[in-house]
């Protein structure tokens, strides 16, 4: 049984007036059925663009210039737009940070959900309505019958995101890409939404890519994690391995930057410098300007190395047992 998703050598570049922005520059990962992968990074890392590339929502001046994205064995790069449209919202669904990117403000919730169902299935209106109502109940919306008749602006931010998630799950997709879905929400609502998304994935067996900058959220839900920096994956592996024994200096720095009970009152570890400008990346390792382990070797871009089920790109990783 092929993996739900296999991405290899993905490069998505944007041709801007100021130059070529290499938003995604050589990304590899695979996701098995039912797996949850956390895709972590800050601004300029390329994590969102990776998600958009998979679902085929890259518009000019952006383009997938190289690489392959295989969804259940089928190649998506270069596939005809019609095929992609067929898959979108059906077998592959996306949840955005702003639920208003999914919801049409002038249509009622039931209209939109029925539309989403009818676009991909041969289903009657009544049956569609029932299915939509049940899905709303599954994402924890109280009194779903009433909510069906509401317009998006009549719902709170958390409710809207739940509706967006419900729409994503309507056609029982095999892969869900969630791009910072809880970043704009309050902590208590965030907890609810993560719980519901987790639950739904477990029930339907869907695979989930959770894109975020928040390591703590990823720690709670992911099986595997990929850390992105300046368009490349700099570290990848099992969640416990990466968080407890990080290899790449960026991951170490990121983990050290998170305030927690352990360093109450002390200076936080800070990574020097700024997040990278993808229009002007340095030669060699993109992280070298900010890294305190930098040497002359870092003038050469590090290749992805695999050790003990972990992948990382670094000439001087933190592993003890890895001498590169």
């Amino acid at each position: 049984m092929p993996n739900t998703l296999e991405v290899s050598g993905l490069k998505t570049h944007f041709l801007m007036r100021a130059g070529v922005a290499k938003a995604v520059d050589g990304v590899d990962f695979s996701i098995a059925k039912g797996e949850v992968m956390g895709l972590v990074g800050e601004s300029g890392s390329g994590k969102s663009i990776t998600g958009f590339s998979i679902i085929g929502l890259i518009d000019p001046p952006g383009r997938i210039v190289e690489g392959s994205i295989k969804f259940q064995g089928e190649e998506l790069v270069g596939a005809p737009e019609e095929r992609l449209r067929n898959l979108r919202g059906n077998r592959i669904a996306m949840i955005f940070q702003d639920p208003m990117m999914t919801l049409n403000p002038v249509l009622r919730v039931d209209t939109q959900m029925i539309e989403a169902l009818k676009a991909h299935q041969d289903i009657g209106k009544k049956e569609a309505w029932t299915k939509a109502r049940d899905t709303l109940g599954m994402v924890g919306i109280p009194a779903p019958d009433e909510r069906m008749r509401a317009y998006p602006h009549q719902l709170s931010g958390g409710m809207r995101q739940r509706v967006a998630i419900a729409i994503a799950f309507l056609n029982e997709p095999d892969l869900i890409i969630a791009d910072e879905p809880t970043t704009a929400l309050d902590v208590t609502i965030q907890g609810q939404i993560i719980h519901e998304a987790q639950d739904l994935c477990r029930r339907t067996g869907a695979s989930l890519i959770w894109i975020t900058h928040d390591l703590a959220v990823v720690a709670g839900i992911a099986d595997n994690i990929s850390v992105m920096y300046a368009g490349k994956i700099v570290e990848q592996g099992n969640i416990d391995d990466v968080i407890d024994r990080p290899a790449h200096p960026y991951t170490v720095g990121l983990l050290g930057s998170v305030p927690s009970a352990n360093n109450r009152g002390q200076r936080l570890y800070q990574i020097a410098g700024m997040t990278p400008n993808i229009l002007a990346l340095p030669k060699g390792c993109s992280f070298k300007e900010r890294c305190d382990r930098r040497t002359k070797t870092c003038e050469v871009s590090p290749e992805a190395v695999e050790r003990n089920h972990r992948i990382f790109r670094c000439h001087h990783p933190y592993f003890e047992e890895v001498k590169v």
Binding site: V187, T188, G191, H195, L215, A219, G220
Partner: peptide
């Protein structure tokens, strides 16, 4: 208590979120 329990923490893996119900 609920706020503290729900805030995601690095040391909590594969946790079961048991959130408080309801909207603000």
């Amino acid at each position: 208590s609920a706020l503290l329990a729900e805030a995601p923490r690095l040391d909590q893996r594969k946790r079961e979120f048991a959130p408080i119900k309801g909207e603000i």
